[in-house]
Simulated assay, not measured.
Amino acid sequence: MHLDKFDLAILKVLQDDARASLNDIGAAVGLSATPCWNRIKRMEREGVIRGYTADISPEALGFMDTVIVHVTLESHSDATLYEFGRALAEIPEVLEAFLVSGDYDYIIRIAVRDTRDYERLLRERLYRIPGIRHSKSGFVLRSLKQSRLPLSAVAPAA
């Protein structure tokens, strides 16, 4: 899909505040509400806009720690990769999981309440997934940057 400067401007407004009104979006990008609405609907249909979410603080809900886990599997068969991915999807504390190249097969980001909670999660959930050969965990000490898509780096279609 080709995105022009208005589409990119609309995306930036929505990325900053998904609850912005059509009038506010239009004022920010220099269009009236109807063209903004049509562009938003088109970007939703085309899959550019995947949905709208609330940015919830994990700490406010008691999840004080984030753990990054590197996992290597015993096998790389399609069935093993599928089953591992399916098992991770069933663990609510798993925030993100990436199949990666390099020394490990997966990098997983997990939210936990504390070290005891992580130890419980390892015993009761993660280590019960068949096929794990090796894992390495590291607690996040501080988040230096949490970013969104760099829309300013996207060139508008001519």
Rank of each mutant, 00 (worst) to 15 (best):
A28C: 11
A28D: 04
V29T: 06
G30F: 03
G30L: 06
L31Y: 06
L31M: 14
S32C: 10
P35I: 07
P35F: 05
N38L: 06
K41G: 00
K41A: 10
R42F: 06
M43H: 00
E44F: 04
R45S: 11
E46I: 02
V48D: 01
V48S: 00
I49S: 00
I49Q: 01
I49M: 03
R50T: 12
G51R: 10
G51I: 12
G51S: 07
Y52I: 12
T53R: 05
A54C: 06
D55K: 07
S57T: 03
S57I: 07
E59Y: 05
E59C: 10
A60C: 09
D65L: 11
D65E: 15
T66M: 09
T66A: 10
T66Y: 01
V67Y: 00
I68D: 05
H70W: 08
V71H: 05
V71L: 06
T72F: 03
H76G: 13
H76C: 03
H76A: 11
H76W: 07
S77M: 08
S77G: 14
A79S: 14
A79L: 14
A79T: 15
T80I: 10
F84Y: 10
R86P: 03
A87T: 04
A87K: 04
L88R: 01
I91K: 05
I91S: 02
P92A: 03
V94I: 14
E96S: 12
L99S: 10
L99W: 04
V100S: 06
G102M: 07
G102V: 02
D103C: 04
D103F: 09
Y104K: 13
I107Y: 12
I107L: 14
R109M: 09
R109I: 11
I110A: 04
D117Q: 09
D117F: 03
D117S: 14
E119G: 02
L121D: 05
L121P: 01
L121E: 09
L122W: 07
R123M: 08
R123S: 13
L126T: 01
R128S: 03
P130K: 15
G131V: 03
I132L: 07
R133I: 04
H134F: 07
H134C: 02
K136E: 15
G138C: 07
F139V: 10
F139S: 07
L141V: 11
R142G: 00
R142K: 14
L144K: 13
K145W: 14
K145H: 15
S147A: 15
S147T: 14
R148P: 00
R148H: 13
L149V: 15
L149M: 15
L149P: 00
L151S: 06
L151H: 01
L151M: 08
S152G: 12
A153Q: 10
A155V: 13
A155R: 15
P156T: 09
P156E: 08
P156V: 12
